[in-house]
Design a binder for these strands. Structure first.
Length: 476
RNA sequence: GCCCCCUUCGUCUAGGGGCCCAGGACACAGCCCUUUCAAGGCUGCGACGAGGGUUCGAAUCCCUCAGGGGGCGCCA
């Protein structure tokens, strides 16, 4: 029973869901889905100053957009709730009380000013900066007296003088020597617990089996191991993936540009593509494969193959990958995805309300898109009659030969059957009349109809525009 | 300053003693295909951080150095 895989994603709602967090969530989710385990979402909102409801809402929205559904957490509940840390304060306080009672933790009355002074002194003397244990040596009588007097205090754990070893799933053996850490705070003077303490209490309470997170937490694990020991609880298995970096090789953050998952949705990326990309940034199957569906990722995923070295977020490659997924999509699935982008770009064009035209249009431009936002400009170039885009184009349609061609073609189009074979034959016939063929035949027609020297397949354009519109444009 | 992690083409990566004078992908360049632009195909460009070991043999194992990153908070 206790063998079941239980993993979690535990964001703090102090901003939007960024791609780094999404990748951590993804690794956990994939592992849960792969093993038939549970994926738990926990909101770490103990920092009341910075946590907001808007962030929570955005987080949930983006997780859903990605399809990273959770088995326990906000909105769905579960047997280990509540899943907001702010609603679990009594639990942390109870655990802290227990630690103080058995002597593993103690109240500390040092003021923030005193501590700051000590920190500075330590830095000047080139010692590592950690708490010197002043209040650890207070007598029980004094402690009781000062607590009773209502003197403000925090709770600190007694850090044992021993080395700690972590067998990390991705990094292997990691060791910390005794004395690299001072007695650290688990309960603030306000009574609010601190991150490292909440995590341990919650992961234990929620029976988390594997903690998979980013490397920035690696050194936190030292503290957490100490807390597990103090609590007498067996720690979960840990795995620390490396960081996602910006182009300048520092930890990816806002200043590197778009890092919000929600922004990628707005920018026309597919959730499958973002997931594929994120999965492959710091994980691979051990071969050359690049394109995976979500189902295939679940099938292939293994924690052991998460890589140790950090990776730069290559926006360019994401765009390419999005194009791969987008082109692999059957038109029926693509149409509803592109539709809002088309209507946004061409709000007044009622042809987009016609399902048949819409379908043909999407079919036509699918190959030209990498992201959904590409649809607007391409569609516009087809749907909207435009004058020649430049002098070269203008010259091409201004010749007598071209004019003769357009006249002949208008006539042919008027009487041909309006299907691909029909207007293909019409073009050929008009070409014969005007003595033009190949590039000299097609290019003037393209320019006359769209105003541009390039764009989607010509017959497809005719198909989308329809007979009347095409003849109109030829005669204009 | 202290602690921890990392180091293969510009970028993502395969590789884990001989299969590697290092393979794939993005980007870039050229060619092919094609009525255009894309898409697709082919070719090219391009890397084992440095120095010491170990070994018949090292990108792969060991040590040192260097570089990069992360953490060191009554933030998470």
């Amino acid at each position: 029973m206790s063998q079941q895989v239980r993993v979690r994603f535990a964001p703090s709602p102090t901003g939007y869901l960024h791609v780094g967090g999404a990748r951590t969530a993804l690794f956990n989710w994939l592992y849960a889905r792969k093993t038939g385990g549970k994926f738990i979402l926990r909101i770490e909102d103990t920092d009341v100053e910075r946590s907001t409801q808007e962030s929570v809402d955005g987080l949930l929205r983006d997780m859903k957009w990605l399809g990273l559904t959770w088995d326990e957490g906000p909105e769905v509940g579960g047997p280990h709730g509540p899943y907001y840390q702010s609603q679990r304060l009594h639990i942390y306080q109870e655990y802290a009380r227990r630690l103080v009672a058995n002597g593993a933790a103690y109240p500390c009355f040092c003021s923030e000013e005193e501590l700051e002074a000590k920190r500075q002194k330590a830095e000047e003397e080139h010692r590592s900066v950690h708490y010197d244990g002043t209040c650890r040596r207070l007598s029980k009588e004094e402690v009781d007296r000062r607590v009773a007097a209502g003197e403000p205090h925090v709770i600190r754990v007694k850090v044992p003088e021993k080395d700690y070893v972590l067998e990390d799933l991705v990094r292997g053996r990691v060791e910390w020597k005794a004395e690299t850490l001072g007695d650290f705070i688990i309960l603030r003077s306000s009574g609010m617990p601190v991150y490292n303490f909440c995590v341990v209490v919650d992961d234990a309470d929620m029976q988390i089996s594997h903690v998979v997170r980013a490397e920035e937490h690696l050194t936190n694990t030292h503290r957490q191991l100490i807390l597990y020991e103090a609590l007498g609880i067996k720690p979960p298995v840990f795995g620390h993936a490396s960081l996602i970096l910006g182009e300048d090789k520092s930890k990816l953050s806002k200043r590197h540009g778009a890092t919000a998952v929600g922004q990628y949705a707005i920018d026309g990326f597919l959730r499958e593509a973002l997931i594929n990309f994120l999965a492959l940034l710091g994980w691979n199957e051990g071969n050359d494969r690049e394109i995976y569906s979500v189902e295939e990722l679940i099938e292939c995923f293994a924690l052991e193959r998460i890589s140790k070295s950090p990776g730069v977020f290559d926006h360019n490659k994401l765009i390419w990958m999005n194009g791969q997924h987008l082109r692999a999509l059957p038109v029926e699935k693509l149409v509803p995805l592109v539709e809002p982008f088309l209507k946004n770009a061409l709000p007044d064009d009622r042809r987009l309300d016609n399902p048949e035209i819409l379908r043909k249009l999407v079919e036509l431009i699918q190959i030209k898109m990498n992201v959904l936002t590409d649809a607007g400009p391409v569609a516009e170039s087809v749907l909207r009659a435009s004058p020649p885009e430049n002098e070269e184009a203008a010259a091409m349609i201004a010749t007598d030969k071209s004019k003769a061609l357009f006249a002949a073609l208008a006539e042919e189009f008027a009487k041909c059957e309006w299907v691909r074979d029909g207007y293909n034959a019409a073009i050929k016939a008009a070409g014969k009349t005007a003595e033009a063929k190949g590039k000299d035949l097609f290019m003037p027609i393209r320019v006359k109809i769209t105003g541009s020297c390039h764009g989607p397949e010509l017959v497809g354009i005719l198909d989308v525009l329809g007979r009347d519109e095409v003849i109109n444009r030829l005669k204009s």
